[in-house]
């Protein structure tokens, strides 16, 4: 089977496997529950906020800063390490398939499922915020639909990058979730507070996602504050275009994951 077809077949199978697990459906349930909550307390939210600020703060804090990184990383890890851990990988590894192509397929499947969840979640949230047309927003500013493409853009590219990282950790480490946790909470948390021009920020995904939204939304009030983080550092206007930065991160992490996946002897971990 040629590598392109291998990647395609594996992507399809991994997508089906990931969707058959409980996790995506629990997340969807969580998104719906969150939306119901937002719909119920919508009047209070509107009383204290402009629509663009409310949509920005909720989406950034819940979806972009939490659901996107944790889920895409988890799906990336599951796609690659799930097989290795339950040892069904022997069926794949003993077949005439290219391992990098297999990893590529799994990575895309993880990114696809994560991106779908994020897009669906943001869509549901938007509907929950705007369904009641009689609601009066502060200064009359309703949540603008024009903000959604930038969220979708950042969600898809972010999912690709975080899933690549998950695939890399899954291929590389025996306990990828812990490493992922250290990366998300420790590394990204630390790097995001460095000065704006610090080149180490390029080693994070969150910085590019933040810059992408900053460019697209020109945020204000609370939204600007949460987007900038506790150190309130404005993004560096001279840094690499955020979309390109996200793609670069994804490709590098994906390539490294494919390299590790192709070389590792996963069966050597299991004593006879």
């Amino acid at each position: 089977m040629n590598p392109a077809l291998t990647a395609l077949v594996l992507a399809r199978q991994t997508t089906v496997r990931l969707l058959r697990a409980r996790m995506p459906w629990l997340l969807l349930l969580g998104a719906i529950a969150g939306a119901v909550l937002v719909a119920l307390i919508g009047r209070h939210i509107a009383r204290h906020n402009r629509g663009d600020v409310a949509l920005g703060v909720i989406t950034w804090l819940t979806y972009m800063q939490f659901v996107l990184p944790f889920c895409a990383l988890w799906f990336g890890v599951q796609a690659v390490q799930g097989d290795i851990e339950d040892r069904t990988s022997v069926y794949l590894f003993s077949r005439p398939l290219s391992r990098p192509a297999m990893l590529l397929g799994k990575w895309f499947a993880a990114a696809l499922v994560s991106a779908l969840l994020i897009l669906l979640g943001i869509g549901i949230l938007y509907v929950a915020l705007t369904w009641d047309r009689s609601r009066t927003w502060q200064l009359g500013v309703r949540p603008p639909a024009a903000m959604l493409p930038a969220f979708a853009h950042a969600g898809v590219l972010g999912a690709l990058a975080y899933a690549a990282l998950g695939a890399l950790f899954g291929a590389w480490f025996k306990r990828p979730l812990i490493m992922g946790l250290v990366f998300l909470v420790g590394w990204e948390g630390m790097m995001a507070n460095l000065p704006a021009h610090a080149s180490a920020r390029a080693l994070t995904v969150v910085d590019a996602v933040r810059r992408l939204l900053w460019q697209a939304h020109a945020p204000r009030d609370d939204y600007a504050e949460v987007l900038l983080g506790p150190m309130m550092v404005h993004p560096d206007p001279n840094a690499l275009d955020p979309s390109l930065a996200l793609l670069r991160f994804a490709v590098l992490a994906g390539a490294l994951a494919a390299w590790v996946y192709a070389r590792r002897e996963y069966d050597a971990r299991v004593a006879e």
Partner: peptide, 9 residues
């Protein structure tokens, strides 16, 4: 057997 299957080097 795993060496023969290419699962180990």
């Amino acid at each position: 057997i795993k060496l023969a299957a290419g699962l180990l080097r």
